[in-house]
């Protein structure tokens, strides 16, 4: 198990380096730079600015500086926000995105497992058909449409009841979080429901389920201990990549619901060509996602003993 974890971590580190390198060179391939924004500056001012940000050095040297700073966990200063360190921006805004994302993942996973198990139990009957119809809809509707309709629904609900049932936008309390997390999790929930249903149906046909029935175990016990536990495995595998989808989906939800998360900052930084913020957030997100996938894989090892043995 330790060897397995060590191997995965090493691959993860190389991946993060790859992400950092790709980001660096992609950024420097962009026509224009953050210094030629609004005002025309004299050559002298420009030279001074370039020297301050290290843009006058050859690309290779800039790359080495970037990597060595990154290793020390320093992403530099923002170009567009005077004297604001990228680390501070991440420290301030990432927790917001993370809380929203974690909440959305919990909603999606619980909902997906529940609905998936339910549809498998009621296979080809009304609940199954209804839920699967919703699932197909959930997979086919883009996330921002969910976000927009969710907000629209809140506006109408608040208008009908005449009181603020849930806030329409903003951030701060638990009630602010409810609707954004729900709309963020919906797409993933639909996907997980579908996966859970297939996996549940597969498990129900297994011999050990028949054995359990033959042993005279109660239906509840078979459902909880045998079917559900085995059927959850594929759901856990896709959870890693789905965390990535939810994180980027968060950009849109943060935009629609005016949530001060890191996603909104990233989009803004890209529009302003704020090199350091873009590179900092990309590498940070990339590392975060790589770590999540590894974590899920390790978690998988704990749930499914077969993985541990083969590794």
């Amino acid at each position: 198990m330790f060897r397995y974890i060590a191997k995965r971590l090493l691959a993860g580190v190389i991946t993060i380096w790859f992400i950092a390198t790709a980001t660096f060179f992609a950024m420097h391939a962009v026509p224009g730079d953050p210094l030629m924004n609004d005002k025309a500056v004299s050559d002298e001012v420009r030279k001074n600015l370039e020297a301050r940000y290290g843009l006058d050095k050859p690309l290779g040297e800039q790359y080495i500086i970037f990597i060595s700073n990154m290793l020390r966990g320093d992403f530099g200063i923002s170009f567009t926000q005077q004297n604001r360190r990228v680390n501070d921006i991440i420290r301030e805004h990432f927790p917001v995105s993370a809380i929203l994302g974690i909440f959305a993942i919990i909603i999606a996973a619980l909902g997906g497992i529940l609905w998936g198990a339910l549809t498998a139990l009621y296979r080809n009957r009304l609940p199954d058909i209804l839920i699967m119809l919703l699932v197909i809809l959930g997979i086919s509707v883009p996330g921002f449409v969910f976000a927009a309709t969710g907000q629209l629904a809140l506006v109408h609900v608040n208008a009908i009841f005449g009181v603020k049932v849930l806030p329409v936008a903003g951030w701060g309390t638990f009630s602010h979080m409810l609707m954004p997390a729900l709309v963020l999790g919906l797409g993933t929930m639909a996907l997980l429901t579908r996966l859970m249903r297939t996996s549940m149906i597969d498990v129900m046909g297994e011999d050990y389920i028949r054995t359990a029935h033959a042993k005279g175990l109660s239906k509840q016990r078979i459902f909880l201990r045998h079917q559900l536990r085995n059927a959850i495995l594929p759901v856990v595998t896709v959870l890693g990549p789905q965390i990535s989808a939810i994180t980027t989906g968060g950009f849109v939800v943060e935009y629609v619901f005016a949530i001060p998360g890191l996603g909104r900052y990233f989009v803004q930084a890209v529009q302003q060509l704020d090199y350091t913020v873009i590179m900092g957030t990309t590498v940070f997100y990339g590392a975060f996602l790589v770590l999540m996938v590894i974590l899920v894989d390790i978690l998988y090892g704990f749930i499914d003993p077969r993985v541990r043995v083969s590794a």
């Binding site: 991946t15 790859f18 992609a26 890209v270």
Partner: peptide
Amino acid sequence: ADFVVALPFLLFMILFKIAFG
């Protein structure tokens, strides 16, 4: 191929799209 898969898709879509200008 493994490395390319590991790139966060939409983040790099945005980056590349800008990079090609």
